[in-house]
């Protein structure tokens, strides 16, 4: 595996007296498919919010692409190459589907000074998602799976090096889950590093090359899908141990 694209170094986050993340250290390599699992409330989304910048971690550093981004605002991090989707879709609901994609295309502005057709590029992204026919619909007319795809498509329009997919599959049917996994595989083949946060084990295990598991804000396991499945700590975190009761 080549060098690390993202390094999370001793990151802690507290909400008042509650410790949501406690000294988490890990890394994601260039081009990797990385899985992040853990029971409800274990700190997955907190960690992703710290990486994308919506939350500031009190301790530790976040290094992306060789640069310390710990104190950067989210939009600066997006400019540096981190894009994310949201667990509960947050489309720009007064805009059409394609206009949703034009926002990151315009504001991240990888083409400053060049003449590039943002609309054509956005259309291309929608085509790979199978959403081309919906381009001019308002987001209010979309179904659940289309909203999830829009979240991913909009993140792609920011031209990220790292894409964070926050539970893009929750609530979807088996077939729809496969469809989303295929999309993520396609993105990865284009060289985009992907962090997948997911509760659907079948999806994470199939997709990820390496997985970490959080429990109560602490990193309890790290390894390949096979190793994670056999890990006693992970089993205890999800199911509880015999000793507990």
């Amino acid at each position: 595996m080549s060098e690390a694209l993202l390094k999370v170094d001793g990151v802690s986050k507290h909400f008042g007296g509650f410790t949501a993340l406690s000294n988490v250290t890990t890394h994601v390599s260039q081009g990797e498919r990385f899985g992040l699992i853990g029971p409800n409330g274990s700190g997955k989304t907190t960690m992703i919010n710290c990486v994308s910048g919506l939350l500031r971690n009190e301790e530790g550093k976040i290094i992306f692409d060789g640069k310390d981004v710990t104190n950067l605002k989210p939009h600066k991090r997006t400019g540096a190459g981190i894009a994310r989707s949201f667990q509960i879709p947050r489309p720009f609901h007064t805009m059409t589907v394609i206009e949703n994609l034009m926002i990151p295309a315009e504001f991240v502005g990888h083409h400053r000074g060049e003449k590039v057709d943002d609309r054509a590029e956005a259309m291309e992204i929608l085509e790979t998602m199978g959403m081309a026919e919906k381009a001019n619909d308002t987001t209010l007319d979309l179904t659940q799976i289309e909203l999830r795809k829009l979240e991913l498509a909009r993140a792609m329009a920011a031209k990220p090096k790292l894409l964070i997919s926050d539970e893009a599959m929750a609530g979807l049917t088996g077939q729809e889950v496969d469809e989303v996994i295929d999309i993520l595989f396609k993105m990865n083949e284009r060289g985009i590093t992907i962090i997948m946060i997911e509760h659907i084990m079948r999806a994470v295990m199939r997709f990820s090359q390496r997985i970490i598991c959080l429990d109560a804000g602490q990193l309890i396991a790290e390894g390949t899908p096979d190793e994670i499945v056999k890990n006693k700590d992970v089993e205890r975190a999800y199911l509880g141990s015999d000793d507990d009761g």
Partner: peptide, 23 residues
Amino acid sequence: KLGRGLNAIKDSEEAAECMGVPT
């Protein structure tokens, strides 16, 4: 660009910020 950015903020400020809009 200002107007489109403001519209994105109106729809979802967090999403706008994460999509590169300097909110």
